[in-house]
Every structure is written in structure tokens, then in C-alpha cells.
Design a protein around this nucleic acid. Sequence first.
DNA 1: AAGGTTATTGAAATCGATTTCATTGATGTT
DNA 2: AACATCAATGAAATCGATTTCAATAACCTT
Lengths: 339, 339
Amino acid sequence: MKDSKIIDVARIANVSPATVSRVLNDSPLVTKETQNKVLKAIQELNYTPNAMGKQLRSRKTMTLGVVVLDIGISYHAEIIKGIEQKANAMNYKILICNSQNEKMKELEYLSLLQNRTVDGIILVSPMLSDGEIASFAGEGYAIGVIGRRLGHLNIPCSTTDNWKIGHDVVTHLVANGHRRIAYLNGYEDALDSIDRLQGFKEGLAEAGLPFLPTLVDKGDFSEDGGYAAFRRLWEESSDFTAVFAANDEMALGVYKACSEYGIAIPDRMAVVGVDNIRITNYVSPKISSVEQPLYELGGLLADKVIDQINGDLQPGQKDFVINSRLIVKGSSQKGADSI
Amino acid sequence: MKDSKIIDVARIANVSPATVSRVLNDSPLVTKETQNKVLKAIQELNYTPNAMGKQLRSRKTMTLGVVVLDIGISYHAEIIKGIEQKANAMNYKILICNSQNEKMKELEYLSLLQNRTVDGIILVSPMLSDGEIASFAGEGYAIGVIGRRLGHLNIPCSTTDNWKIGHDVVTHLVANGHRRIAYLNGYEDALDSIDRLQGFKEGLAEAGLPFLPTLVDKGDFSEDGGYAAFRRLWEESSDFTAVFAANDEMALGVYKACSEYGIAIPDRMAVVGVDNIRITNYVSPKISSVEQPLYELGGLLADKVIDQINGDLQPGQKDFVINSRLIVKGSSQKGADSI
DNA sequence: AAGGTTATTGAAATCGATTTCATTGATGTT
DNA sequence: AACATCAATGAAATCGATTTCAATAACCTT
């Protein structure tokens, strides 16, 4: 238990602590000979450098904070894995912070930057307003955001190509003969949602179809939200034949509602979601969905935040967009689920 | 960016750093008056104590390491949430370590204890052998294990009542008329699996049924593992009418195999899994499963590990068992899925 | 051989807080 | 009034490493 300190190693090896430190950080200015002496002493004492002493002096924790709403959500879990993989490769550890949907907690976690518990923070789909994030980033802390594009702020953000998602989905549905397509948004004010809706509209326009505001509703990215939104639309007017849901959870809500109304998927109603979560392949029919490269999204941003920490972030760049891919399955195309 | 230090606050408030520190840690020996002066100075400078300085001196990081195989697995995610909730309530943060199935990485993460990056570590379903874990715990580090019961080692472990799981499931299946029940184990050598198998055997015995070793196979807790194991059993002899899978993933593998063989669930084959993961309610029929209180499991052990850190762990106790509950659904009982 | 480099090493300062110990002034006791 | 007690504060040591700067020794130059 009684762990040894650098000075103990120094004494045993008959050198100064400075030399031990040099060996530890393999500085080139130590003789092979002294290096060996020190290494032997380290072994003998089973010495491990105390992280806090090291961090205090070097003013680095080599730790990244990752603030997510809920690690239980597979969308977040995958992003975290991407971050962790990249971070570990660059010798960083990650501190997980579950904000549990509370803005307060998010803010609280940001203060880990202030007290130097972490060197940088990655916010995954934060609830915080741009302004709140900005006030932190302004102080010169390393912050990055995933899943949301920030306005003018000079903060690295990584997102998927949301315009393309909207465009791809509508194009696919139109190709399958749909002319009246409902759109279930998540949170409507996020820049991402705006992009996606824009792609959706332009896709319609290209097909020579009108955009119908009455066929737009929103949920909160949850199954229940999707369920309620679909019901509202359907009760209003049932003259649409396809639904594009902002994510798969909402698509699952649509499934539930359709099952209750006795609406056949995909014959009477085509459904497309986003994220391509695992469950989409276990329901029947499988849910067509847009696969987002979440792992890469996380890794990319980890990279940028670490760059930012080291001051190597290219000043111009701040928005990083990664390509997504629509995976057509049985929910939007007859017979697409090969059995 | 230039953050202020305790001495800056001291100067502004016209007191010594010691007094500022006292205010920070609300020591009772400061006058209201000086306290106010200090508080004002802190505000003025927007001062936050540097975590590293604090940690170095106090020899505490207030951080718990959590080593899991993969946070993407909902089983782990739920446990982590339980740990985090409890840890946060006690002012601890948690450092997530994804071991990605690599024993090496697990060992590596354990060394975070040695270098004092964390005050304690919780291993979730570790791959490490008892001996490997023991060699660390022996040094007096705070370690806890979830999801596996360790032998004689004096390490807090929390698990569900595996004997009861085996017993409950077999009793349920027997009650539904099954007499030849296959058992798909996960990893067979874990103490947990042994307990569960024991409960299974005793349940059979109570019903006056023989235990048939030929109806036992094993996978690796994965869908593919369950698929392969079921196929092996079925090809060998198809004279069983129910399968008890070590977890829901394996049960999903059984579903896949049954679908390929054209075996009707539950008419020709009843299926029961463990964990009650979300997907079990989205397949058809829904999969009967044993719900484990994972959140509580995590919280409980976090509590114990923190006790251990503070030296308040009751010496006698080391195994903590939490009750589980079988949830009967359509995969093992006709009509159980109310539509 | 004298003076100048260069390669190794060590002494001491430093990171930013906490904590021990000593000091001061005020209060209470007899 | 003399002394003990106590509350509030500060000076300085400390946690365990890194890093700057100075010192030494060894090697070149010419």
C-alpha cells in the first residue's frame, strides 16, 4: 500500500529526482548506464508516478470530459466509444458525465474545465443554448460539440450532413411513389433540424411536389413523442402515405400508432427513421433508416478538441460534417426485407 | 483564461491563503466577517480552486473508475447509470474505461489505482481471473466487482440471485407443461453460472424431472453464440420443448435459429432469457425474461467501494445479492402478450 | 596546454492547494 | 489582577512530480 515516491527511487538508484524524472519521460540526456540504474530501482520498488503530482506540475490532466444526456441511449453510447477510442490512442482518458436531461447538470459539468479536472470537454447534443456554451468557450477552454451545429461561435462541431439526410429520404420516398409525405421533427429550433428540413423541402421541390406545412409536426426524439405526433397528424387528416421521423425512436412511436390504427406498413404507410439503431432490424417490417457514422463522428471531434487543447486547431475550420447513408428496408419498400 | 489562484484571493481579501482555504472548505473557525470578505474576493476574481492542487494535497481524487466491456451493451449502460447516480450523490465522479474485451486493457486500467488517478475501481463483469484481481486488491486498493462473485477474496461483489433465476425459470417452464428443457449457458466457469445451473437443477428435481446434460450447451452471451448453440442442440436431438438462455442476446439467437428452422414460438418451443433488455419487447412474440435490478446493483456497489475507500466497509460482508424477477411474456406462455 | 564546447547530472524552485503549528488578542476564572 | 482558555488568523511545511539553472566532467580546438 505504502507506495514509493520519486525520491525513493532516486535514493536507491543513487541519483537525483530530476534524473529519475528524465528517465520516466525518456529524455535523451541520460546515459544508458544511469537509465538502467534508475529502471532497476523503479522495478525494485514497483514504482508508479503519482498522477496528481505530475498533473499539477505539468498543468495537464490528459482527461477529456464527455457530457451526454444518457449513456443508455445507443446513439450516445456509440459516439462515446468513438471518442474513447480516439482519446485513448492519444493517451487521453475520458470522464463520463450523464446530464440526465438537466441543463443545470450540464452547466455544472462544464465547470470541470474551470477547476482543471479535465483538459477539454465534448458536449454531445447539449441542451445548453449557444450563448451559454459560448460564455465558456470564450474563456479559452477547449470545448467541442457533437450533434449540433453552433452559429458563429468558434467551437468545433461535428454533425452528419443533415441537409443530405432530408434530401435522400424524400427522394427515396418519392421514387417509391409517395407524394404526400409527413415530417416528424425532433426539436425544431436546432440548426440541424433546420438543415434537415431544408433538404426535405428541396427534395420535394426537385420532384415538383409542394411542401405542405400541415404535414409537419414534432416530438422530442422519443418513442412517445413520435407516437403522439403521428396521432395528431393522422387525426387531422389521413391523406399522407409516408412518414419521415427525425429518429428511429420516433419511428417506433409511429409503428405503435399504426399498429393501433390498423395501418399497414409499408402498404398504407411508409416509414423512415434516422440513426439505424439496432431495434430497427428486429421489428417487422424492419425500419428503413439513415445510418450515421456516430463512431467516426465522436472520434473526429475528440481529435479536434485535443488539437484545440494543444493549440493546433486550424483557425478556419469549425464545422465538420460526416456522410450518412440511407438504408432501405421493409418499412418503406415492399419486399426489401429479404427473409 | 488566466485563472486566479488561492493566493490572489487571499491578497484581495487581505487575509492569508490558509484562511481562504478554510472558507472554501467551510471550516467553522472563520468569522462571518472575514468569510464575507473572502467570498466577495472569490466572486470578484471568479475563482475556482484548482482540482489538481487540491487532490495532490488531500490525496483524494474523488473519482471512481468503472471498467466495462462495452458501454454500448445496455446491460452495462444501466449498471453505469446506477454507479454514477450513487457516486455523484457522494460527490464522486466516474471515469469510464471500455476494456473492449481485452484482458490487457482491463489490467492496464487497474493501474489507474496505482498512480492515484482514481480512488477506487469497479469492475463490471471482468474477464480477469480471481488471482489477477486479488493481486491488486491485496495492495489495499479499493476494488469492487459487479456481475461476478469472487471466491475467498475480500472484495465486495454485487450480483443478482443467480440460483433463484435458474430456479424461477425452470419452475415457470415446468408449470407450463415442459419436461425437457434445454439450457444455454454463457460462460460456464463463472461462479454465477454455476449458481444458476444449480438453481436450474434443483428446480427440475423439485418437479421430479431428471437433469439431462445432453440438453446443456453454451455460447458467449452473444446473439451469434445463442444461435450456434441452439443449432447444435437441435441438430443433435430435437426432443426438447423449451430453452432457457443465459441472457436475452442468446435468446435472440435462438429466435433467429427457430425462424430458420420454422419452429414456432411458443407453440413448439418456449424461450426464456435474462436481463429483460428493451428488444425483448419489440420482437414477436415478446421474450420472457428475468429482470435484473441493474441500476440498483451498480448503485449498491458504488456505495460499498466508497465505504472501502473511507475505510468504513464492514469486514464481514462482501457478497451483496439483489433480487430479480421473472417477467412472463409471449415467448413462454401462449397469449401472454396482450395486444 | 589553455580555453571553449558539450553531455550529464543535481539543487532548488515550482505547480496550487491543505494543514500543522505558532501567534495574537479576547474572554473567562479565581 | 494574574493566569488559563479559547477563537481566529497567518507562516511555513507539505503533497509528488517537473523544470530551470547552475555545476561538473569530458571532450575538442588551435
